[in-house]
Amino acid sequence: MAVVNEGALKKMLKQYKYRDLTAREITNVISQYKDLKPVMDAYTFNDGSSRDLMSLTGTLPVSYRGNVYNIPVCLWLLDMYPYNPPICFVKPTSAMMIKTGKHIDANGKIYLPYLHEWKHTHQSQSDLYGLIQVMIVVFSEEPPVYSRPTTQPPYQTFQA
């Protein structure tokens, strides 16, 4: 796997307001979670506008009923990160279906109290590492995706 160093990340993050802080946090996270990679790509907002943003894309290791699964996720960092929370999605493969529920909508968007209460101050520093740990715990109780049964057609979601 290619190693991304902090210097290269800073170049990719040149339009980010807190570039150094963001690059350092990404470097720390991908050193711990080796199946996440920083990817620069176009993100389309609800109003149809689009910006090139950094995401952490890959899988998170989640234990569920005695097995470890690699849950595919994509965590988008806005250009005001870490003062705005990431926008997070599960990214099911064609062999998976989303399990909508309290924390996941039909588009795979992730909703967590940690994201809703995101705050980056001297007293309280929400960060990617904390967010990922929360995701792993929540997903180990309620996986956001399931393997599609082989007899079902694709592109269905399972209602909780």
């Binding site: 796997m1 290619a2 899988t59 690699n70 849950i71 399931y146 393997s147 049964p149």
Partner: peptide, 14 residues
């Protein structure tokens, strides 16, 4: 070879 872990998910329980 550079792709990281293969995505996987628990089986569906009915």
């Amino acid at each position: 070879l550079n792709g990281g872990a293969v995505p996987s998910a628990p089986p569906t329980y009915t």
